[in-house]
Nucleic acid binder design. Sequence first.
DNA 1: TTATCGTTGAGACAAATGTCCTTTACTGAT
DNA 2: ATCAGTAAAGGACATTTGTCTCAACGATAA
Lengths: 186, 186
Amino acid sequence: MIRTNQELLDYVKKNLNSDPQTYLPHQTLIGQGKRVNTVYIIKSGIAKCFLTNENGNDFVEEFFGEGEIVGEIEIINNHVSVCGVSAVTELSVYKISEENFKHFLDKDKIFNHLILKALSAKIHYKALRHAHNQSNDVEMNLLRIQKEFPGIFETIPKLDIANYLGITLRSLNRTLSELRMRNLIR
Amino acid sequence: MIRTNQELLDYVKKNLNSDPQTYLPHQTLIGQGKRVNTVYIIKSGIAKCFLTNENGNDFVEEFFGEGEIVGEIEIINNHVSVCGVSAVTELSVYKISEENFKHFLDKDKIFNHLILKALSAKIHYKALRHAHNQSNDVEMNLLRIQKEFPGIFETIPKLDIANYLGITLRSLNRTLSELRMRNLIR
DNA sequence: TTATCGTTGAGACAAATGTCCTTTACTGAT
DNA sequence: ATCAGTAAAGGACATTTGTCTCAACGATAA
């Protein structure tokens, strides 16, 4: 539910002596459709990666926590950002410029392998999550993400959760109140 | 809809002098939950990558065409396969052993970068596809994939298409007949 | 203070989707 | 030739989900 990458965070902390930068909730790190020239690695806090469609509806791809990296896809494949990325809670991030990122990727074998692993992990958890999302009903999906991150309803706004599950706020509320009635939640 | 990677295929054709192997429709390349020790790169044909859940229902992650690679995620992150992979049409694939793949990844900078790009591309199109899947209705999704791959209904079984869209066969048929009535399809 | 806006919650109804079942056609195996 | 299995198609009904609406609450700005 909240993705993390401790191995990458440790490596970045040790080998990148740059100061982290802070973002407040709702602040934007990367704008959808914008050119990306910085890689961000989350030191603490939660960010969301989301896609806004023609009707103004959001779909949340992932919630990113400690050690997760954003911006690398766009730089590697040299295209504008598919998703927007913004802070959900207060956020502390390490920034790496495009030049430095490409340089490390080329010259630092350990970093190169950490990125290969980070990308593979993203594909892996994306595959699992979307399979679950599509083959189970709202109730099961809610129970699953609540199990993965018990503090979810105190940390992440309901609308973001609904957009993560690909349902409306109404459906989320309906299912939540059913689960509450059956004492399966809260 | 059918993912391809011409750049990778070209490189593999030029630099790997191994003979491709053939699979018939329904044959399995990789079993879900199995250890993977071979990377496959599709020379021709279509494969599906899918996840079977506890109830026996499949969710199709992707349809892979020319140049797409499978097995690399599992080898890079050293875990068993999340998805099963099997042939949809007759398939011709190049195989690379785990050892060789790791060797190329480590020693061949061009290959390394092609894999970085392949992984990034997978994340990119997965993000787009799932956002579309979840924010649009069945009708729009059907029209979209039909536009991306006009021969779809003559090539891929209906149940696979339904499992790709995360809907039942009944829903697919219903929407198809509505679209036919309105002359928006076939 | 008052006004406004974002968030949460839920009622009533409409629309979309799933479940279950039946039919038809085609293919391959016996 | 017959049978079983798979794929495609759709009827009838139940269930789930979305749409539209209103209401309460708290935070923040005027």
